[in-house]
Amino acid sequence: MRAWVRIGKKNRLRYVSHLDMQRLMQRALNRTTLPFAWSQGFNPHPVMSFASAMAMGWTSEYEIVDIRMAQDVTAEQVTKEMAGALPPDMPVYEARLVDDRKGAPMALVESAEYRILFESPDPEAVFGAIQSYMGEEHVIAMRKTKTGEKEADIRPMTYALNRQEDGSNAVIARLALTEKATLKPDLLMQVLASRAGTQAEGIRVHRLCLFGAGGVPLMEL
């Protein structure tokens, strides 16, 4: 049996790195009485994985950690125990139990929705560029990879893009997030701003949701 736990990462903790998150989660599990499973081998560790690594500086309300249990547990038990074991700025929203045969959340994620806050000399121009961007079939951008820069067509990786309707300088974007194709919010904002003839800086990314096949939120998949 496995449990999927959805947690958040609030502003104050946005510089906890992915590596630190893994250590933090292992210690948090140790603080619970949950019957989580240990890996075999020389350095046993709890069997767990994250749906998606977050970049340093991002916040989120939709991080999913998949934890293998050695014995049966209830979702309520998992929610309650994890909530007591994580720091206050890492809230636990919900947990669900999944069958062992279900794929790892990492393999099931297809896209993510973000709220992207930005600063710009001309924010209206950035918003204005949304429509023309979405109207294109292809938008080629230089994407930074481990080996250098690479051309990529980012338009097909942009599933939805809208202005946040509350007066703040923010867009809501649903972007591809798979092993093969991932569009990072920073790159999207750079492209949008440059199409608008301005800059977008001070970008703050907040993850709203992770989706699987058919645009179904991961926790409901």
Partner: peptide, 16 residues
């Protein structure tokens, strides 16, 4: 300031 320094988590607070 935190996005501009090394190891920002050491200034963050909010630990368990």
């Amino acid at each position: 300031l935190l996005s501009r320094v090394e190891k920002p988590s050491r200034y963050m607070g909010g630990e368990f």
